[in-house]
Design a protein around this nucleic acid. Structure first.
Length: 339
DNA sequence: AAAATTTGACCGCA
DNA sequence: TGCGGTCAAATTTT
């Protein structure tokens, strides 16, 4: 069966199941948070299904309003469109709004090149030399594009002005399970910290360790990590990013979440990982001395917001419900989180 | 063997 | 026609 059709069916089915769950939670004893989570879950499922059937549909409407650096609006001719239209004429997907959901500037002195790991699994599908740029632009799409119909893509390009800076542009929405998993984990953390006056970043960006194009030049003299978030100057920074020293492997095998929980919620998170509360540009660095036992293998830890369209609320899924029910320390009782 | 990356070809838009 | 974005075969990595 066509993967998109299957995805639509799955999402609609899930929406129905979650709706059923919600019904059981309409009892007065059920918490408001739980009901809210279920509602968000439902909306997310429908949103995903609709986004496949019609790109111009509710996706745009339900996207969190996020300021975007549309420095290089691209055409609407994504591979998604062509792939889909090649397979099924009934699925005509076109975006009316061009442009990238966000742009993140990521600095790293350790390993500077290439795909910036951000908690999601990306598959590189192209690289292009850009006119006027010293460095090529890498094109990535979500690894789960075909398996789960996740349409998120990103571009990574090293800055000409500052070669230690990577400009990452995200586009599309992470609808894969991976997205749900991460947002569900991080958002509450952020909410709690915000409540306390600290302001951490929600998302992770980890630099991959690949070396090419001579980035060793930089890695030899700088190990500090810096993250700069841009394009979020709408007053409400929906993507306060979050940085954390975790090896990419941990991200992929799932232990990453545990690491976050242990190091952040359990109170071991270094203040260095906390981002200053600036609505326009979040910029902080992580000194190697904060990395503790991680530092031997950890060459890069970079953080930046991930796709704007990954609404933290909307991406919550059953895994977050599990946390709600089984992890008393999880700050779900924070009203801000559900607002 | 499977997954991921590389890289030249191809395509559409300006 | 050139450029940016994507495709897809070949190659590399896991």
């Amino acid at each position: 069966m066509d993967w998109e059709l299957q995805t639509v069916l799955n999402e609609l089915t899930e929406g129905r199941e979650v709706t059923t769950q919600l019904m059981s939670h309409l009892h007065p004893c059920s918490s408001h948070q739980t009901r809210q989570l279920l509602l968000d879950k439902i909306l997310r499922s429908y949103d995903k299904a609709l986004s496949i059937l019609n790109w111009n549909g509710s996706v745009v409407e339900t996207k969190p309003a996020v300021a975007v650096l549309e420095s290089s609006p691209c055409t609407d001719r994504s591979d998604t469109v062509s792939e889909v239209s090649d397979k099924k004429d009934v699925f005509k997907k076109r975006k009316t709004s061009s442009g990238w959901t966000e742009q993140v500037r990521v600095c790293s002195g350790a390993s500077l090149d290439n795909p910036l790991e951000d908690g999601y699994c990306w598959r590189k599908y192209g690289q292009k030399a850009i006119l006027g740029s010293n460095f090529p632009r890498g094109y990535y799409r979500c690894t789960h594009r075909h398996s789960q119909g996740c349409l998120a893509i990103k571009q990574v390009q090293r800055s000409d002005n500052d070669p230690t800076v990577f400009e990452v542009k995200y586009r599309g929405r992470h609808t894969c399970n991976q997205a749900s998993h991460f947002t569900a984990t991080f958002v509450p953390v952020s909410a709690e910290l915000k409540e306390q006056g600290n302001h951490s970043r929600k998302r992770l960006h980890l630099l991959e360790e690949k070396e090419n194009q001579g980035q060793h030049i930089f890695s030899s003299f700088e190990t500090g990590l810096k993250v700069k978030t841009e394009g979020l100057g709408n007053g409400e920074n929906i993507f306060p990013s979050f940085s954390f020293p975790v090896e990419p492997e941990e991200v992929r095998n799932g232990s990453f979440v545990e690491a976050i929980m242990e190091n952040n919620i359990m109170g071991n998170l270094s203040p260095a990982f906390m981002s200053p509360e600036t609505s326009e540009s979040n910029y902080f660095s992580v000194s190697p001395c904060h990395m503790g036992s991680f530092e031997s293998d950890l060459t890069d830890i970079i953080s930046g917001p991930t796709s704007v369209t990954n609404s933290p609320i909307g991406d919550l899924d059953i895994s977050s419900l599990d946390k709600l029910e089984f992890d008393p320390s999880f700050p779900f009782d924070n009203p801000e989180f559900f607002s």
